[in-house]
Amino acid sequence: MPDQQVMKAALQAYVDRTNAGDADGLLALFAPDAVMEDPVGTPIKQRAEMAQLFRDGAAYGARIDLIGPPRGSHGAEAAIAFDVRFTPPGSPRLLIRSLDVCTFDEDGLITSLRGFWGPEDVSEDPVTSGD
Score class of each variant (00 low, 15 high):
D65S: 13
D33Y: 03
T111F: 00
A79M: 15
G108T: 02
L53S: 15
L29A: 05
Q12D: 13
Y14T: 03
F116Q: 08
A31F: 00
A9T: 14
P39D: 05
D56M: 09
W117Y: 15
Q52Y: 03
A51N: 09
R63S: 13
A13N: 12
F54S: 08
A13W: 06
M36S: 15
R63K: 12
A78P: 12
L99A: 11
S112E: 15
R71E: 15
P119C: 03
E37T: 09
I44E: 11
G115S: 06
L27V: 07
R17Q: 14
R97W: 01
Q52H: 06
M1D: 01
D33C: 05
L99H: 14
L27K: 04
G75Q: 05
I110P: 08
T103E: 06
V122L: 15
E49D: 14
A10T: 15
P43M: 01
A51H: 14
P2R: 00
L99I: 12
G57I: 01
E120F: 07
F82E: 08
A9W: 03
D22R: 04
H74M: 12
V122E: 12
G21Q: 09
L99V: 15
D24T: 08
I110G: 02
A81N: 13
D131I: 08
R114T: 03
V127C: 07
R93M: 06
A23G: 07
V127N: 12
A48S: 14
A13T: 11
P119I: 06
D16E: 14
I80M: 08
G75I: 01
A79E: 15
L109M: 10
V122M: 14
G57Y: 02
P39G: 03
R55Y: 02
R55H: 10
S98T: 09
P119Q: 11
S91K: 13
G68K: 13
R97S: 12
R93Y: 01
V35R: 10
Q46N: 09
V40A: 13
P88G: 04
I44A: 06
P126K: 02
K8I: 03
T128N: 12
